[in-house]
């Protein structure tokens, strides 16, 4: 446990010092500017717009930090072989991977929650309103999504053979993970049996990111979010992450470091 924590702090510090928080700063500036502009331009439910923009901004800045972090660390750890030093130490490869995932996630939390604070501030002070309770649920959902994606990204880092590969795989997983509803729709259409089997595999392998997309359903009158749903979503986030982590670990265990 202490060793995992050591890797986590090491990764966290590395990412922070790689100036990744600039992403946060830029996102905050863009968001404040947009909100200010909109408060002049638009009328009608301005608070709703502030909140929706803020939530989207939180997710996008989290994703950006993840992608940039993956790119930066791939260069040092894999291309320049800094990973040798970790793996030769009394540290199992699973501990190494988990520590890195947690370090990345910590940075992500910092960025997402930091943005969240700014959004709440904007709603209260620029918009003069209050934040509904569902907003906080949304934030937790975004964090869960980030956790799943962080696990995936770092697992890709253990499998892929180039930095571009890691970034592209992660990016496309985000994109396709949100398309999963469309895949389900496609499955209900008439088409060849084999394509259906293929689609079904894609459907089950990809993370169901739409499940974490509470921000698009913030005002949905049909939304039910009780303890049962929370249980499902938490269990899903962690079971998916765990499978991915296991795959990453096994790959790391088998990987050769030439």
């Amino acid at each position: 446990m202490r060793r995992i924590l050591a890797v986590t702090t090491f990764t966290f510090r590395e990412l922070l010092r790689s100036r990744l928080l600039f992403v946060w700063l830029i996102s905050v500036i863009v968001l404040c500017g947009l909100d200010f502009l909109l408060s002049i331009l638009s009328f009608g439910s301005i608070l709703q717009i502030f909140m929706d923009l803020g939530l989207a901004g939180m997710e996008i800045s989290g994703l950006l930090v993840l992608l940039l972090g993956l790119a930066v660390t791939y260069t040092t750890e894999m291309d320049q072989k800094a990973i040798f030093l970790h793996l030769a130490k009394p540290l199992t490869r699973g501990e190494y991977l988990l520590g890195r995932i947690l370090g990345f996630f910590l940075v992500n939390c910092l960025v997402v929650l930091g943005m969240g604070l700014v959004v709440v501030g904007l709603v209260i002070f620029l918009g003069g309103g209050t934040v509904p309770a569902l907003f906080y649920d949304c934030v937790v959902f975004i964090l869960l999504e980030m956790f799943v994606l962080t696990t995936l990204g770092l697992t890709y880092q253990m499998i892929a053979t180039s930095m571009v590969g890691v970034v592209l795989y992660t990016f496309f997983t985000v994109f396709l993970g949100h398309c999963i509803g469309e895949v389900q729709w496609l499955l209900n259409q008439e088409m060849s049996h084999w394509i259906k089997v293929l689609l079904r595999m894609v459907y089950y392998i990809l993370p169901n990111l739409e499940a974490f997309n509470l921000k698009d359903r913030l005002y949905d009158p049909n939304l039910v979010l009780g303890w049962a749903q929370w249980q499902d979503i938490l269990l899903y986030a962690f079971s998916y992450s765990f499978v991915v982590f296991l795959i990453g670990w096994i790959n790391l265990e088998k990987r050769e470091f030439r």
Binding site: A6, T76, F84, L85
Partner: peptide, 27 residues
């Protein structure tokens, strides 16, 4: 103890922090 051919560290740490990190891995 292992010294690789071209020891390369993630550049964002100080020498002391690196040694502290590796030391803590050793318990």
């Amino acid at each position: 103890g292992y010294l690789p051919e071209l020891p390369y560290f993630s550049k964002q740490h100080t020498g002391r922090e690196l040694l502290e990190y590796f030391g803590s891995l050793h318990g």
